[in-house]
Write a protein that binds this DNA or RNA. Structure first.
Length: 299
DNA sequence: CTCCAGGTTCCGG
DNA sequence: CCGGAACATGGA
């Protein structure tokens, strides 16, 4: 499926190295990278540069093909979840006006397969922070504690390992604008580095058991755990309820209902949005955010 | 200056 | 189970 192709026609930026082409139908690279599920990809030339684990990657979309750094074909195809059957997922969305409008707006947005720790850690730092702030903290942590990797002439940084963050001083973490989240991130890193919790071992568990495992980490509640389950653990049924989604639920699906508790909202989302509720959630989330402040530049 | 941001945790009804 | 409050930081 991945064939090496010399990018002879329109090289995006000669310093970023040779590219290979992947077939990518029903895929919107830009949407997938800027919708708030991942925070470190930066636009450059006609595409984006970022890391997938410890590997620096350039990615650029041209219609139905995705150009990626040569040698990263299978890595990128897995990360960008090009195998998710969107044409079979969309029909499982509820047929209501809000959901269908979000679908039209976000068509091609794919839920990525992010590295376990990287995703869990970034969402530990996400509490009570705007998306732009999360990106800033992620970038600061990478520069200070991450392994540098080259992408042609550019220098990128992998997300710091649990070991690197576990041995960091809390004051150094706070220097990355983490605030009270610094202690949570460091203690969680310690639990992973020491083997107290094995993230990989959670992969094979039933949803509720994987959720319970993640909840053992300090700074991880139900919302952050569901983000990790959805964006890293491939649990496409996970439905994180944040302030944006709660707003959508109350204004659209519980309009003029009084005294709707959190438990009632959660129970509703677990059945109403179907087996790919996580996809539905991300589409509603991104659509709601973009509708709220149209006109302003993203991030 | 005030308000709020992809929440979590602890505490009292 | 439910509602409140504290918790850091920065941008609108």
């Amino acid at each position: 499926m991945s064939r090496s192709v010399a990018a002879t026609s329109r090289p995006p930026a000669v310093t970023l190295g040779p590219l290979s082409s992947l077939r990518a139908e029903v895929f919107d690279l830009s949407l997938s990278l800027t919708c708030g599920q991942v925070f470190h990809w930066r636009p450059i030339g006609a595409g984006y540069m970022g890391t997938i684990g410890e590997t620096a990657v350039y990615a650029e979309q041209r219609g139905d093909e995705l150009l990626v750094s040569a040698g990263c074909e299978s890595l990128a195809a897995h990360y960008f979840a090009l195998d998710h059957p969107l044409e079979r997922i969309y029909p499982t969305f509820p047929d209501d006006p809000a959901m269908q409008e979000a679908l039209r707006f976000c068509r091609g947005l794919r839920i990525l397969r992010q590295p376990l720790w990287e995703c869990t850690a970034t969402f530990i730092t996400s509490s009570m922070k705007q998306v732009a702030h999360i990106a800033q903290m992620s970038d600061a942590l990478r520069r200070r504690f991450g392994t540098p990797v080259r992408l042609g002439g550019e220098k990128l940084y992998a997300y710091p390992t649990p070991e690197a963050l576990a041995r960091a001083a809390e004051t150094d973490l706070r220097a990355c604008s983490l605030g009270y989240r610094a202690a949570n991130l460091r203690r969680s890193a310690e639990m992973i580095a020491s083997g107290q919790l094995d993230l990989e071992a959670l992969r094979g568990l039933p949803y509720s058991d994987a959720l319970a495992g993640l909840l053992r980490l300090p700074g991880v509640g139900v919302k952050v755990a569901n983000c990790a389950l959805l964006f890293a653990f491939e649990r496409l049924e996970a439905f994180p309820i944040d302030v944006w989604i709660e707003r959508v639920l109350r204004e659209i699906y519980f309009a003029k209902k009084r005294r709707v508790t959190a438990g009632r909202l959660r129970a509703f989302t677990e059945t109403y949005f179907g087996p790919y509720g996580g996809y539905a959630q991300q589409y509603l989330f991104h659509f709601a955010r973009m509708a709220k402040r149209r006109g302003e530049p993203a991030e």
